Computed example of a mutant assay.
Amino acid sequence: MQHRIGVISDTHCPRFPRVPEAVWKHFAGVELIIHAGDLSTLSVISDLETIAPVVAVQGNVEQEEVVMTLPIKKEIRVGGMRIGIVHILGDARSYARTARQEFPEARVVIFGHSHNPYNQEHAGQLLFNPGSANDRRRQPACSIGQLLIDDEAQAVKGELILLP
């Protein structure tokens, strides 16, 4: 079976009025959306749930309702893949070590915080940061991502999507 998962992070609503409209186009048909933190408000989840079910973790810039509702980290399974989700993975030089410590059995670790897209394999573990959907900071564009999981081949691929 093939799975297509939308991945988003650092929406920072209501500092930014809403999740960009382009997200609805790019996430149309996904079976799940993973939000890697810094939603800031829970309304982001209900907005995204109009597309697909949402799994989210809290970030470091959240309203109290988010902190009281969402975990700091979470591990889920999609098909045969274990996916770890956390907002902060630490310094880029130690991503691989930190990911392995936090999620030793995960095939994929999704994170956010830096607003810098990241899509690299490290010793059989895909580390994936979709960047920020609303706040590009030092990047040329805002971005989101998707995971493509193939159960039969036991393979996963991350794709970064630049937003207009």
Rank of each mutant, 00 (worst) to 15 (best):
R100I: 11
S94M: 13
F111R: 10
V7R: 03
E62N: 02
N134S: 15
E102D: 15
V55S: 07
Y95A: 04
E75M: 13
M1E: 07
L48F: 00
E121P: 12
A56H: 02
A141M: 09
H113L: 12
G6L: 06
I85G: 02
N129M: 04
G145S: 03
V30H: 03
E65L: 00
V66P: 00
H12L: 07
F27V: 14
F128E: 03
S46L: 08
K157T: 14
G124H: 11
A153S: 12
A96V: 07
I144D: 04
L48C: 03
E21G: 15
H3I: 06
S40T: 04
V19G: 04
R137N: 09
A133L: 07
A133W: 02
S94T: 13
I72T: 15
S43F: 00
R15H: 15
N129S: 06
V55T: 14
Q146G: 08
Q125W: 05
E152Q: 13
D38G: 04
H12I: 09
L148P: 04
K74A: 07
I161D: 00
R97T: 14
K157E: 10
I161V: 09
Q154T: 14
F16S: 13
T50R: 12
P117W: 02
G145Q: 01
I88L: 11
M1W: 05
L126F: 05
I72W: 13
K74T: 12
P164L: 03
A28F: 05
I72N: 14
V54N: 03
G112Y: 03
E105K: 15
L126G: 10
T11Y: 00
E152S: 10
V55R: 11
S114M: 05
H12C: 05
N60L: 02
I5K: 05
E121V: 15
P20Q: 02
S46F: 02
G59S: 07
S132N: 05
I34C: 03
D91G: 08
R4V: 15
R136I: 12
R77A: 10
R136M: 09
P71H: 11
A153K: 14
I161E: 01
E64I: 07
D150Y: 03
Q120N: 14
C13L: 13
S94Q: 12
V57H: 01
T69Y: 00
R137M: 10
G158V: 09
V109M: 08
F111A: 11
H35T: 08
L160M: 13
S46K: 10
L162W: 09
A36V: 08
V7F: 00
V61R: 02
Q146F: 03
L162I: 13
C13M: 11
H3C: 02
V78S: 02
D47H: 06
G84R: 08
I5T: 10
L126H: 06
P164S: 06
H87G: 06
V61D: 00
D47W: 04
I161L: 07
S114T: 15
G90N: 01
Q139L: 06
L162H: 12
